[in-house]
């Protein structure tokens, strides 16, 4: 890790030198909600003026650039008797992700563990992940953010550059050799001791802004103990089973595979679609038996996967505390509330 500082005006230089020959994706304002507050989304940007590094959060994570909602795993051509399978990984160029918050970079690091680990690494993800230049940026915690509880408020790796606004300039962390090459062409300076202090003060200020918390102490054990707890039924009764929480989650990777035949009957495709464990037929098997027919068991399963199973496998939770699921949930179910109720805490 190399630290530099740069004047704020250098942001445009950085953007311009990357956008010229690459596709840059970053937070832009797409609309306002009914309260008049801006809505942001990760979209391709060509004009730095549109890039909103001051964004609060996005409704959807940047998932579509590394785990698209729907993508073909393979295509087939067939002549009726024989067939040929063609595999493609659905990416033809590198992407620059400009302005990810720490939680979203941590989400990628978590996904890496499952999707790029030693056991059956997934090339569809790996091809996209390896072709990503990630520029992180600092943020101001929102009322729904509980990333600090999940240890995802800072990020140690998994990005190329990280920009922290320390008042009159950016404090820059350079993580990769590729980023070093880019930063060489920016006017940067070696941080002074005052810059270090300012950086630490900025982070400390940010930490004071958190209002949502999740107590993760002994959570895997508690989830085991409270498997039969009546609170699951209560949350299940509220849950609509719509799967929105998974759709907006930066770490939900579950999917289903379906094959379809082209009308010519000469071509077929095998398509992967992200799925949600809260949707009714997630655990249904051929013949119609459903291992999780009730909404409560499906909702519970989602918490078990994120806060118990993943911890068991990787010593960390599969939740980064971005709070998107709680914000998007039509029934108003939030992670801090569910976990507090499982822990028997007062609501």
């Amino acid at each position: 890790m190399l630290f530099r500082t740069a004047e704020k005006t250098e942001l445009k230089a950085l953007f311009d030198m990357l956008v010229e020959k690459n596709t840059v994706v970053g937070p832009v304002q797409t609309d306002t909600d009914r309260m008049g507050k801006p809505l942001f989304a990760f979209e391709p940007v060509t004009d730095q003026a549109k890039l909103r590094l001051d964004y609060t959060t996005t409704r959807l994570p940047a998932k579509r650039y590394f785990l698209p909602f729907r993508e073909d795993l393979a295509t087939f051509t067939t002549d009726g008797r024989d067939w040929t399978k063609t595999i493609g990984y659905n990416i033809d160029r590198p992407y620059v992700l400009f302005g990810l918050h720490a939680c979203d970079i941590n989400a990628l690091n978590k996904l890496d563990k499952v999707l790029m680990g030693p056991v059956y690494p997934m090339p569809y993800y790996a091809a996209k992940r390896k072709n990503m230049f990630i520029i992180g940026t600092d943020c101001r915690p929102q009322p729904f953010c509980f990333c600090r509880s999940m240890g995802a408020d800072t990020v140690l790796h998994g990005f190329d550059l990280f920009l922290t606004d320390i008042g009159d300039k950016y404090f820059i962390e350079i993580q990769s050799a590729e980023a070093y090459e880019v930063a060489k062409d920016l006017r940067t300076e070696t941080p002074t001791e005052a810059d270090h202090m300012q950086f630490m003060r900025t982070v400390a200020e940010m930490n004071k802004l958190f209002t949502a918390h999740v107590d993760t102490t002994d959570l895997t054990k508690i989830l085991d103990m409270e498997f039969q707890s009546p609170v699951w039924k209560q949350w299940g009764d509220k849950c609509l089973g719509c799967g929105t929480c998974s759709n907006v989650c930066p770490t939900c990777y579950c999917y289903g595979v379906e094959e379809t035949v082209d009308v010519s009957l000469k071509k077929a495709r095998k398509t992967k679609t992200l799925y949600s464990c809260n949707v009714v037929d997630f655990a249904e098997v051929a013949g119609g038996h459903n291992f999780r027919p009730e909404r409560s068991t499906r909702l519970k399963y989602r918490y078990y996967h994120k806060h118990r199973g993943f911890v068991e496998a990787y010593e960390e939770s599969l939740c980064v505390g971005c709070g998107r699921c709680g914000e998007a949930c039509l029934a108003g179910i939030t992670v801090p509330e569910v976990i507090a109720s499982v822990r028997g805490e007062e609501q």
Binding site: Y120, Y255, G256, F282, H305
Partner: peptide, 8 residues
């Protein structure tokens, strides 16, 4: 292959 989670 431990990816889709449908068999969990």
């Amino acid at each position: 292959m431990g990816k889709c989670c449908r068999c969990n």
